[in-house]
């Protein structure tokens, strides 16, 4: 359905914006390494089913892309552009995010199996793993516009999944309560940022008016 496609494209675009930003500026300043490492954990734990279940070529390719690109970004940040990397401001206590997500996955899952627990863990972790990035944004005060575009596209992706879940509930009679709950949490975390982004974009348009 349309929402799902739009969501996936938005997710894809967010990563392309991020890669473009890093390659063009030859710097990773303003981007939280912690958030990017958490994304590697999110994608690897969620897409373990690549090895066991085949959904579609589209599905597999997207999963491979998300795993590969997240690993690539972390490599860019730690190796290639390491010299310009300042980590002193990226100090969000990530252990609480990981610990909290793990507890949530033990409490809420469809089956008590290794892969299902990890899948649930990845949902909760994804919901909160932008926090170090938002924290860094707040601490440095200003961000390059492009970084905010990245966060916006990333937030939009899960927000678009919400109407997708409504759609699937009515058209396929299918309800994934775990995805919906974690998705709502994720969108809530982004909502403050969305508001600021919206204000900023509006303002910029205002300035550009003749």
């Amino acid at each position: 359905n349309l929402f799902r496609i739009a969501g996936d494209i938005s997710h894809l675009v967010s990563i392309l914006i991020l890669l473009q930003t890093i390659e063009k500026g030859k710097t990773t300043s303003g981007i939280s390494l912690k958030t990017q490492i958490l994304y590697v954990v999110v994608f690897v734990t969620r897409y373990l089913d690549l090895l066991t279940t085949y959904v579609s070529l589209y599905n597999s390719l997207m999963k491979i892309f998300f795993i590969a690109s997240s690993v690539y970004v972390v490599w860019l940040m730690t190796s290639k552009y390491n010299k310009k990397f300042k980590e002193d401001q990226d100090v969000f206590p990530v252990k609480y995010l990981v610990g909290g997500s793990f507890v949530m996955s033990l409490l809420f899952h469809y089956k008590f199996t290794f892969s299902e627990i990890l899948w649930s863990f990845s949902l909760w972790l994804e919901a909160v793993c932008i926090l170090p990035q938002l924290f860094l944004l707040q601490k440095t005060g200003e961000a390059k516009a492009i970084t905010t575009h990245y966060i916006f596209a990333l937030g939009l992706y899960r927000a678009l999944y919400i109407p997708n879940w409504f759609y699937r509930y009515y058209s396929e009679n299918r309800l994934d309560l775990l995805s919906v709950s974690a998705g709502l949490l994720q969108t809530t975390i982004y909502s403050d940022f969305f508001y600021v982004y919206y204000q900023k974009v509006l303002k910029n348009w205002g300035f550009n008016l003749p």
Partner: peptide
């Protein structure tokens, strides 16, 4: 309502 079996979303 069907519960999600198999995760076909990203």
């Amino acid at each position: 309502v069907k519960e999600a079996d198999g995760h076909d979303e990203l």
